[in-house]
Design a protein around this nucleic acid. Structure first.
Lengths: 341, 341
DNA sequence: TTTAGCATTCAACTAGCTTGACTGCTAAGT
DNA sequence: ACTTAGCAGTCAAGCTAGTTGAATGCTAAA
């Protein structure tokens, strides 16, 4: 493919992204005056169509990018603009609020992503497995229940109610036992240890405090209390749906987004660490996303990104995702450093 | 309005709710064989139209209920079926999971409401003001931050990170000071006390622990960390929107639902304690809801209900909201009792 | 007060027509 | 070999007119 064809393809894709209308040879001529006539452009467009980059919705219409066209555009033609300065400032401003619990930080980030990109913004929280336990505290709660507070190195706080009858003395002992044994360990290892313990033969002979400690741990780790996946900007999705003529057939994507588990699994599967990646249409493994594009980036601890129609502003989506992802990573890393001091 | 006219109106409304098609005199005749001819029904329908209960979408079409018609139907003609036994069982099953934190309980409840009614289900959490503080615990978190854990009488746990440099001894002192002073108090009173303290002249003379305690309290109470409003079943709303021909104009309602603050305020304003209430179309104070109906019920601690199109199954919505509301109230009340023991 | 009959109304559907925006092809030009 | 101009072909979209059929409203008789 020669330079002119590339430029024509670029024109077609970016014009279509802006306007939503099929792009004709004349439109290309007007917007990107290449010094050749519309007939030449038509010839090139026929070539691009033969190669599968663009297609006609019907016989005598202009051209529309295919998924392959979007893919080529994203891979070779995308001009990754820095995020506008005012946007950057707004974001920095946003992150200036005092460092709070992880959950709110992530929710805010998803919200930001949605607003800056005009897509559905999502942030998947770090998997517990790799994070390390910073501290565990048992808070008595009435006579027969405990509040177990787990603090991870990132400042994530998980609190969970567990049934247990312990005297203040026992509580103290179990508490220090747990901390002694688990502090600084990754959750994955703790989980493994708990599983191992319960497979142990003859464990009724170990000291009762330890047994109690394991019971509590098991209860806590078996359920995850906090939201792992934050999704904001559903409004954007709905607007896109209503604009599409066949919107009603696309409800599957809404259903997918309300299935936290499935969507999270999908994200973990496709995201790459530190790299912004787009999955366009049928490149997505999930059938519900056949007509959508998903932008993902692993930010070191989890995944964030955006979801929107094939016809989205990829340039903006890429810049914003990268910028926000790096920002979030920086915030979380500094939190980790700070805790380690 | 005589009995026959009421029955005809009832037929029209419930048939329209089921079918979505304008109801003709013949349809009424066929479904509710009243022993009179279609001409008579037509006469009655003309009367009902004159009174504003039904309307024609166009000249020679069947009749469709107006908001006034829905209102009359809800007030006088609604047969409040008990929830089907299988539904009840499913619900009871659902609530059997071990009593956990309030937040998850409410989210589940919203989810249930959405699924049983086919509407958007929402649950507004109890306002903090009226609930009493059960316990406050300060958990040290590194050298310069604290985790403040507030436990309310309902089992709601609010944890919040606060900046404070305290030695273990000071921490202990502040902790017991706070508990001594605040335990069992309603949050509203605590907030008032904090405000009062900061308006106090010459407060630099009070003992430093107390000052520190108030600073922490202030930081905690000034922000609310947890989600107050749980909304589930946006999918249902989406479907309703896509079915409507003028769906794109109705995006305001989606925007409203993502404005937690505004929607929560609205709910608190319109809901009545222990009573299921429907606001139909323009009865809603918010303009975005002009074409929607909202079912609300105060469940003793907050508000729950559903939101959907004017043409909804009011009978089912009422039964489900009442049933689930009472159930939730019972669960929360028993939690309160238990804590008090 | 109810009924039967009949004229009237009007959305929805269909078919045919026009328009205009594009394309694809061809033959001539560089 | 590539480019251009011109022109025929295609087809969605928009318009109009005509048809159909479901409902109504009215009137006069029961």
């Amino acid at each position: 493919m020669d330079e002119r064809k590339r430029l024509i393809l670029k024109q077609i894709v970016s014009h279509y992204i802006k306007s939503g209308e099929p792009v004709s040879s004349r439109t290309v001529l007007e917007h990107y005056n290449p010094g050749v006539s519309s007939a030449t452009i038509r010839n090139d467009m026929r070539y691009l169509e033969e190669q599968g980059y663009i297609a006609k919705p019907y016989c005598s219409a202009g051209r529309v990018p295919t998924e392959k066209g979007y893919r080529f555009f994203v891979d070779w033609l995308l001009e990754l603009a820095e995020l506008a300065h005012q946007d950057q400032h707004a974001l920095i401003e946003y992150y200036r609020f005092p460092r709070q619990d992880l959950e709110r930080l992530l929710r805010q980030t998803a919200f930001l992503l949605a607003n800056v990109t005009g897509l559905v913004g999502f942030v998947l929280a770090p998997g517990l497995e790799e994070t390390h336990l910073e501290r565990i505290t048992l808070v008595p709660l009435g006579s027969d229940r405990l509040l177990v507070v787990l603090v991870s190195e990132l400042g994530l706080v998980e609190s969970q109610v567990v049934e247990a009858r312990l005297s203040p003395g026992e509580l103290e002992e179990v508490n220090s036992l747990l901390n002694l044994r688990l502090r600084g360990q990754p959750f994955g290892a703790i989980l493994a240890e708990v599983r191992q313990f319960f497979e142990l033969e003859g464990r009724e002979w170990v000291e009762p405090e330890l047994r109690e400690a394991f019971a509590i741990l098991s209860a806590v780790l078996s359920r995850e209390g906090h939201r792992r996946l934050h999704i904001e900007g559903l409004l954007n999705l709905m607007e896109a749906l209503l604009r599409q003529p066949r919107g009603a057939e696309q409800l599957g994507v809404v259903k997918l987004l309300s299935d936290e588990r499935r969507f999270a699994e999908f994200l973990r599967e496709v995201a790459r660490e530190g790299e912004v990646r787009a999955l366009i249409g049928r490149e997505n493994p999930l059938p519900e996303l056949r007509h959508w594009s998903v932008i993902t980036m692993g930010y070191g601890f989890g995944v964030l990104g955006g979801l929107g129609p094939l016809r989205m502003d990829y340039s903006r989506a890429f810049s914003a995702t990268r910028y926000i992802g790096n920002r979030l990573r920086a915030i979380l890393s500094s939190a980790r450093e700070e805790v380690k001091d």
